[in-house]
Design a protein around this nucleic acid. Structure first.
Lengths: 365, 365
DNA sequence: CTGTTAGCGCGTTCAT
DNA sequence: ATGAACGCGCTAACAG
């Protein structure tokens, strides 16, 4: 069996309480005693039992990080920055080191709830939910209820890259991404280049990120008099000459979406993709159709993932400071930094213009 | 405070032991009693305390997955497949659902040991170490010792994408990648195209993956009479006309490495990169130098990550079935599938020839 | 089938 | 400054 506190105590000739005090350093212990205990710990290769400690102290050092897709660098970048931030490191207290638990929901609402249960069961110190939320009334209510309970029991909750949950109380801090503004600037960029027939290969339906990006897109069109303003909650339908199709955030969704878009409107001169990965698929589909980018069709992505600059041509996209956001979420979930006013901060996004967008071929130069 | 077993028991008018039995379903309970307990659980929104359960049952449902870089899709793909495999799912027993804890070591030996301690403290059900190992005598010994102790205390250990640890006993199962064979076939491909001055922008020094890929590279050269066989353990030095530089697995390392390589030997006609991400950096550096790929210089990557096919030109690379390997590691760490003979399996790698490699410009066609 | 009784390993009183 | 004793919430052995 594993070595326990009592073993160490026996070896050091003290009581287990003393060993506990030495280990946690939160109580005065005589120097010589401390030394003896330290030696015994080393000699026995003692490692505290996390569950016993958590049970007795009613606290744990686990921080859950829910992501929609670990294989997607979007989440990887957030998670790695977050993990770096909360791990024990030089210049930080040893007990401060929390263990980030990256949980892959695959975008499934059920998996999300399952993981929240698991984390509640583990009495996690904190939970960070990253990326777009599934906007289903019932699911939102279920998540809200679970998070409220977690928060009530002392678990710190942070939302990173998803909209705030107004009904959950003020205990939940939100770091939102300005997807709407970024999308708007992106479409404005295309419009200013002269594009008028702009298609969207959007993300999954009912995902908050998808909705926000489409809202920004529509706002830009509306500003050019090309689309009616869409009231909140209203659905996004195709407009003549401005088709929209939905898919996932992966390359093949982009590929298929582009083909579908071309079927709907063969005359589009620009395509806005759900994200950079999908944009690569869009480019591939266009290439396979014999269309050049940006000669025949301009293509834009979103997120500015590291590989975007190496695509052919380099992708025009919208940069989200994912690492900064992840690090900040880490500080917030530890309580190391104070929540922003209103428990909510929006991180700015930045338009990155590169080679994949250009004036439409028929435009006067 | 949180609802406890006793609360549920009181509410249902039974003993806590009965509630425990209903929850775990590992003991006969009368149907009517079970129903009453179920109702009480639902009404009270009861969630078991994981630590208490783990403490009492001396087991936990945590599986640690150590990765060198969560932001790198190489690890993301392994981790997501693994997590999918070990999570509770349809057609699996509910208690079977384990929680994968993705731990980001950043390639740091200290972080690796820290996480192993943390996982030991949590009495993890299993630990999977993925990706190349740091080949330092002392560190290897430390890791081996820790893993041996973990294994002895019942934690299942699986190595995925790193070489076996011979001294740790047979309890540790290894899924190795055939980096050596893949690298060899890759360099053979370049040689057969007519390249003779081939540079390497290799991975970090002392990383097992780096060593294996370089060994394969050298083996191919040797087969063409272009390099002396290198004895095991011997260092890799430059050969005339076949320069090697070391860096990380990121894009900027590839970029810098390519520039350094060109300084060492401006006449190289082909460059083998540490992985696909670095290869993109290599291509960018060549482009910035006014060299075309593959016109002036051929470039090859490794891993065949999803974006490789969309690079310009598409990358010739070596495919590793990362998802299959991750899923297999998941099954092994759960004990759901039997270890291979010798506790070690090697997954094959496959050469993917694409547009980034071509005969050298001066070659007779 | 169900209740009672002991711990699991540790933190934390309360004494000393 | 140190030790003894209790309890965290749950499972498992033993009765009944």
């Amino acid at each position: 069996m594993a070595v326990t506190l009592a073993d160490v105590a026996a070896r050091a000739g003290v009581s287990s309480a003393t060993v506990s005090r030495v280990l946690n350093g939160n109580y005065p212990v005589a120097g010589s005693t401390r030394e003896r205990v330290r030696r015994a710990v080393a000699e026995l290769d003692y490692v505290v039992n996390g569950q016993a400690r958590a049970l007795a102290a009613a606290s744990s050092d686990l921080v859950g990080v829910l992501v929609n897709d670990v294989a997607d660098p979007f989440f990887g970048l957030i998670a790695s920055a977050l993990q770096r931030e909360i791990a024990a490191g030089p210049g930080r207290l040893p007990g401060d080191g929390k263990l980030a638990v990256v949980c892959n929901t695959g975008g499934s609402p059920e998996a999300e709830l399952t993981y929240l249960t698991l984390l509640e069961r583990q009495r996690a110190a904190g939970v960070v939910l990253t990326g777009g939320a599934v906007e289903d009334r019932q699911h939102t209510a279920a998540v809200t209820a679970r998070l409220a309970r977690l928060a009530a029991s002392g678990t710190r909750i942070v939302l990173c890259g998803r909209p705030p949950l107004p009904d959950a109380g003020a205990e939940i801090t939100t770091i939102a991404f300005d997807n709407r503004g970024g999308a708007r600037r992106l479409t404005e960029h295309l419009l200013s280049l002269g594009h008028r027939r702009i298609g969207c290969v959007a993300g999954p339906l009912e995902r908050s990120t998808t909705r926000h990006r489409l809202e920004g897109h529509r706002a830009a069109l509306a500003a050019y008099g090309l689309a009616p303003e869409v009231a909140a909650g209203e659905e996004f339908r195709d407009l003549p000459g401005r088709p929209v199709v939905h898919g996932g955030y992966d390359r093949s969704s982009g590929y298929d979406g582009a083909l579908e878009l071309l079927r709907k409107d063969p005359a589009v001169t620009a395509i806005v993709a759900a994200n950079d990965t999908a944009a690569l698929g869009v480019c591939a589909a266009l290439r396979d159709r014999g269309l050049s980018v940006p000669g025949d069709v301009s293509v834009a992505g979103f997120d500015d993932l590291p590989f975007s600059v190496d695509a052919a041509p380099a992708l025009t996209t919208v940069r989200i400071p994912l690492q900064e956001a992840g690090a900040r979420a880490g500080r917030l979930v530890l309580g190391r930094s104070a929540p922003p006013p209103g428990a909510m901060a929006t991180v700015a996004t930045e338009l990155m213009v590169r080679g994949s967008t250009a004036p439409p071929s028929g435009s006067a130069r």
